[in-house]
Nucleic acid binder design. Sequence first.
RNA 1: GCCACCUUAGCUCAGUGGUAGAGCGAUGCUUUCGUAAAGCAUAGGUCGUGGGUUCAAAUCCCACAGGUGGCCCCA
Length: 727
Amino acid sequence: MQITLPDGSVKSYDRSVTALDVARDIGPRLAEAAIGAKVNDQLWDINRPLPGDCKLAIITRPRLEKDGKTKGEHNPDALYLLRHSTAHVMAEAIQRLYPAAKLAYGPPLENGFYYDISLEAPISSEDFPKIEAEMAKIIAENRQFIRYELPTPDGMKRVATEGNKYKIDNAKRAVDGGAATLSWYVTGEPRRIRKASGEEFFFITAGPVTSTNTFCVPTSALQGSVLDVSKKQEHVSGDFVDQEAPHWQWEDLCMGPHVPNTGVIGAFKVTSVASSHWHGNVDSDRFQRVYGTAFFSKADLDAHLNQLDEAKQRDHRVIGQKLGLFVIDEMVGQGLVLWKPRGGMVRTLLQEFLQRELLHRGYDMVFTPHIGKIDLYKTSGHYPYYAEAQFPPIKMRDHVGGTGGDEEYILKPMNCPHHIRIYASDPHSYRDLPVRLAEFGTVYRFEQSGELSGMTRVRGFTQDDAHIFCTQDQVKHEFRATVELVQFVFDVFGFKDVSIRLSLRDPASDKYTGAPELWDQAERELREVLQEMKVSYTEAKGEAAFYGPKTDFIVKDVIGRKWQLGTVQLDYNLPERFKIEYIGADNKPHRPVMIHRAPFGSMERFMAILIEHYAGAFPLWLSPEQVRVLPISEKFTAYGQKVTQALSDAGFRVRLDESGDRVQAKIKVAQDLKVNYMLVVGGKDEAAQAVSIRCRTRGDLGAVPIQAFVDKAKNELATNGRDLVGL
RNA sequence: GCCACCUUAGCUCAGUGGUAGAGCGAUGCUUUCGUAAAGCAUAGGUCGUGGGUUCAAAUCCCACAGGUGGCCCCA
């Protein structure tokens, strides 16, 4: 057997070996730290015989710093194994506490793991300590994870015997996916029984012993952590001279792999419980989804929990409240955002910034109303396709005209139909194209109540929307220009962790409108442009808009949820539905192509992410309050007013703190509000006609003449923050 | 929409069946102060809403509303 190690060296064996055997041959310290392996880039149990010639990398537990934290970066593979194993430990603990619990599915996650479990009574956070205590016992017992495999017919029989329909389903899926065997992991060495003849057997049982869920194998069948069950017997007869008392033994149908034993789990926590559904289907069985996380050390866990706490402080809902940026008022309605003056200032600045950029890039601004007649949306396809996501129609009767008919309007769920009608209001020559119509257009969607969340998911929001009408020849150029616009915008705000998703239709679904050939063409063109631009992206089937494929820009919020911000969508369908035209060089009518695009996505969601991105500390150009003047006592209020006026005249957003507080208190207040610069003014400053600058991050920067501060601050704006005041 | 949990002063929160509390904020007075909270005083609450149990409910039960975490959804 030829084993190729990561450094390229090769080890040869003429016998079956496990990754641990190889690790031992390399060095005792490696073997000591080894908890798993990667075999041909696939995770593998450290004690499982290697499959033959292969590439092998040993996964070790991390080295710890003096303070107990992992040295350097966490190894995702090591954490994966650890958390997958901890999920088993938690499931066992829950089954011990609630014997009726049926397990469904328990994968590791980026920051932890969960297990979907069917329980008779729901559990709550009050039950966590009990579960954690039970887990701690299992970990203290330092039990081995032992793997055994059964050929699929035998394996299916075994899951059927256990009678857990979810596991039966998991097994069926594995078999349908081509698995030749099914594997189980036993937590802990099984009970041993010994016959008078000296033969020793493991007595394998799933959960509490019954007549049907047990079998026996000779103890010699345990090699490494793998139990060879090819010689299993349902019953062993004869005289037993030594028999361990029946004890609880736990196993789970599982692909693995796992860490070698439960003792590897250094620190863990059950973090939350929520509900989920079998196969994600609402009409199907409901599970308790119990979340937890695990680390190799207590210090790592504490650091992680601290980080979560800090993230909570960065949450836009928390900061929005603290800084007075926005409020969502019960009396106004769910999911309807009220932008308070400070938030409104930021939004105005965002709009000014983008609008300047759009005008520069050949867009025209338009305005359209918030409602439209229902036929408009029937033509566009919104109404029949997404009726349940819209506010119900407003019925109007024409009393004055007496025509007697009812007219129905809906709050617009999208701006495109209105923009299409603007396009259609004039004849167009190919010479006019592309036509780029932009609007900060407010739309209303009746999102499910359970989905609403701060400013990231709301029922009324304003898209920084635009629709580009162009010829087929112009599509790729225009599409590329819009993607570049989105990239430009994200760059201005310093968003680094952005993923690009090419959202395609799911050919199996019937929720899309338009001919498949047009979809294929649009999807092909988007893909080509992204490839030409050499941007990395992932493709997501089924994520397209109902009228066309799109390129979405996804960012994460502070608690790790992913949100789509910018989007660029290619659309052959709406021009067709509205039968819009332009006259080509051949003097014949042609159908233009539409591109929908929104760099921010919506003002609300963008603002939410921006608040979290900056932790509320907006850069000078975006700050609702750039400067606050702080007289050291009320005696200097008059001079403070003079300074405030000078700054205001110079175009800055500035306030004077006229309270009777001491300057320390004024600073505290201004710091908490994340004001960029505080100007402390007292007798010395007045005498010199100066201001003492304090920066919210860099503290006291010393005194300068008023005009000098104005110039420095203007320079900071002009250089987009590269030249900071005080440097 | 579904499941679980939560809702007490403007904000953050304590209060597990027996007369509603704290800190911050607000207001007033004193202090007139040089870089992250001066001192004192006062006001502010039918404890989300409605119903029920009880001699007695912020506290227990039910319904509704809103929020949070998930699920489903997401043009």
